[in-house]
Amino acid sequence: MPQLDQIASTYGSQIFWLLVTFGLIFITVGLGMVPKIGATVEARDKRIADDLAAAQAARENATSTEEAYRARTEENRAEALKVTQAAKDKSARDAEKKLAKADAALAEKTAAAEAQLRSAKDAALAEVEAVAVEAAQDMVAKLSGAKVTAAKAQKAVKAALANG
């Protein structure tokens, strides 16, 4: 095995070159480069964590804003509902009042018209009676030549009208 056969003649150079190369690696790579690369990774991790935190904060902010907006909308809707309800009630009351007024006026007019109608009817009826009495007198005079007094004729007409 050359590793053991040659050990006496080669260990000096092996150790020397190992210390030189490994020392160089340790100084340039181990001490020089590794911490920098580690710092890069750490900076990136920190940046990602910060970005995530910022995104989380923005999201929470957006949620609270939306909640406030929703609450305000709800409030506004309730307010609007109240206002319209009040307006509706008022208009209903107004309409009732107007209706009552109009009803009263109409009733008055109707009563007046009815009274007029009644008097007109009475007048007409009285006229019809008078005309009928005259006509009855004339008819009796023409048919029988007998003269009927107005009072008698009136009595007969009244009886006839009452039956008719």
């Binding site: 080669t10 000096g12 150079s13 092996q14 190992l18 190369t21």
Partner: peptide
Amino acid sequence: QIAFTNSALFM
């Protein structure tokens, strides 16, 4: 004797 060997070359 510190010789530059094939071992040193590969190091």
